[in-house]
């Protein structure tokens, strides 16, 4: 049913989307300092440099620690909230759910400024813990949405069967519900992890001068001139995102996760 013209359009857009990434990949392979495309005396020199140069290794570590712990916090908040909203309903659940989704709907600079004044008031401004907690709350939306989707997909007959056979509420939750939503928990964690790695404004406002993350480091270096190492970070981030979403796509149902109800298994 899809016309050839339509397919051509989709292909063209995808090529345009890939174009900057292609150029950046080329740029990251330059042997020298200059950003040339096509690259001159191509080498992987700058890829090693990222893991050797101390001024890049620090931000890399910061970013990884923040993303790993913050996503864990997001899931720890989102899982009980999603379960509560699913199992009980009511206005309070709806309010909490809206609160959980809100950070993502608003321009992030507002949330960032909110966190800035909050941590200043608490005297934690500039600490890594502040960045981690801020990211943890900011990214709750992602696991919340994926886990809720997973819960809604559970067949009520399964719960009914478990109860009829005498399972207590705790047993039903532990042995039926949690295993069924586990894949959604994992994808929620992965989404939050990738986004935390890439997040700039909150990390910058909360502790930008003391806890440098990779995006902050790139932006700070942009002012002093471009080096191929920025291309390296960009390429690695793109690869990681493709890996994470690709894995979810292979093992899960990405179209359904994105809200399509009637995707045929073709």
């Amino acid at each position: 049913m899809t016309s050839r013209l339509g397919r051509a359009y989709v292909a063209l857009v995808l090529i345009l989307l890939a174009l900057p990434i292609l150029v950046v990949t080329g740029v990251s392979l330059n042997g020298g300092q200059a950003l040339r495309f096509p690259p001159q005396d191509p080498s992987f020199r700058w890829y090693g440099e990222l893991f050797r140069a101390a001024d890049w290794l620090g931000p890399l570590k910061n970013s990884l620690v923040i993303a790993a712990v913050a996503s864990l916090i997001s899931v720890a908040v989102a899982l009980p909230l999603a379960l509560h909203a699913w199992g009980r309903g009511g206005w309070l659940s709806r309010v909490l759910y809206t609160l959980g989704v809100a950070p993502f709907m608003l321009p992030p600079v507002i949330t960032a400024l909110g966190f800035l004044v909050f941590w200043v008031a608490l005297g934690m401004y500039g600490q890594m813990a502040a960045t981690i907690l801020s990211h943890g709350i900011f990214l709750v939306t992602l696991p919340l949405v994926t886990i809720s989707l997973g819960l809604r997909a559970i067949d009520p007959a399964l719960l009914e069967a478990a109860r009829t056979m005498g399972a207590t509420r705790g047993q039903v939750l532990r042995t039926v519900v949690l295993p069924l939503v586990l894949p959604y928990v994992v994808s929620g964690y992965a989404f939050a992890f990738v986004l935390s790695l890439n997040e700039y404004i909150i990390a910058y406002m909360v502790a930008g001068f003391t806890v440098e993350t990779l995006p902050i480091k790139i932006f700070n270096s942009l002012r002093y001139g471009y080096t191929p190492i920025m291309g390296v970070v960009s390429v690695l981030f793109v690869l990681l995102a493709v890996l994470v979403y690709g894995t979810i796509g292979v093992f899960g149902n990405l179209p359904r996760l994105m809200g399509a109800d009637r995707v045929e298994d073709r």
Binding site: P20, V24, F191, V194, L195, L197, N198, E199, Y200, P215, I218, F219, L222, Y226, M230, G231, V233, S234, F237, V238, A241
Partner: peptide, 9 residues
């Protein structure tokens, strides 16, 4: 999910 920094760069 790419950082605005990376898109800008």
């Amino acid at each position: 999910s790419l950082s605005e920094v990376i898109v800008g760069f």
